[in-house]
Amino acid sequence: MRLREMTILALTAVMLAGCGWQKVSDLPAVAGGANDCGTVNLAVNPWVGYEANAAVVGYVAEHDLGCTVVKKDLKEEVSWQGFGTGEVDAVLENWGHDDLRKKYVQGQRTAVELGPTGNIGVIGWWVPPWLVKQHPDITDWRNLDRYARLFRTSESGGKGQLLDGDPAFVTNDGALVKNLRLDYEVVYAGSEAALIQAFRQAESRRTPVIGYFYAPQWFLAELPLAKVTLPPYRPGCDADPEKVACDYPEYTLDKIVSRRFADAGGPAYELIKNFRWTNEDQNLVARYIAQDKLSPEAAARKWVEANRAKVEAWLPEG
């Protein structure tokens, strides 16, 4: 009996007190969908540079165009798959991927290329700064064999270790080592995290490491790695993956959208088509996210507010 009375008492007290509390119904309603822009599905591939692109494009689409932006965290292959199923509208930073282009742009014709992002991708072999200071000539591939002993590890079987990363990135390193007759063994670290950790530690502990890396990448802002020069790239020298003996080409990073999205046109499509910025721009936003630990949203706002002029140029006319 007493229990029930107490319960009722407590409930009444709560209800009375509740009069002063803010109600859920007083909260602003869910935003979005008011404009004719509709919904944009952005694939977000798992690296910070991409995240920066997506953050800024998404922010502008939401705030300037009134679109509903849905970001989907996906790996590249799955993102491209999504063009066909209608679940992904745009990939905002594509690194080459000729295989995917062949399959989805030419083959299934579900994807459309939408021009460069303005970022230039550089792939190659890099070493930590301290090593260059110590051995300035290490950045020439011809001298690498002399330093092979430095790079020996438990994994490289007596040769120098060349560390490779996430298998999602194009790599010719196995063929390169063979064709340049280097005394090195490619060790597949398997992830970007493993690469970055290796470089970071190499610098702080003054241990030697050489590995596959790429720019633009937020980590280069933390630690300016030095790139090793390989035999220069000439068009066609990488045609046969077995016989590659030259540097990686410079990648013009570009945007890919689904055919459906392109055919429909719309303000978001225009925005993505016009979107173009520099490596420095991306590195800045990436640093906000990776080092200053801002949320992508906040990082985008910070950049957009400071670069209003650039943003205006992307917006569809009218």
């Binding site: 994994e155 298998p167 398997g190 493993a194």
Partner: peptide
């Protein structure tokens, strides 16, 4: 495979 084991794990990744 994500941290340097190579072999089957790397193949899957």
């Amino acid at each position: 495979g994500l941290v340097g084991a190579g072999a089957l794990g790397y193949d899957v990744v």
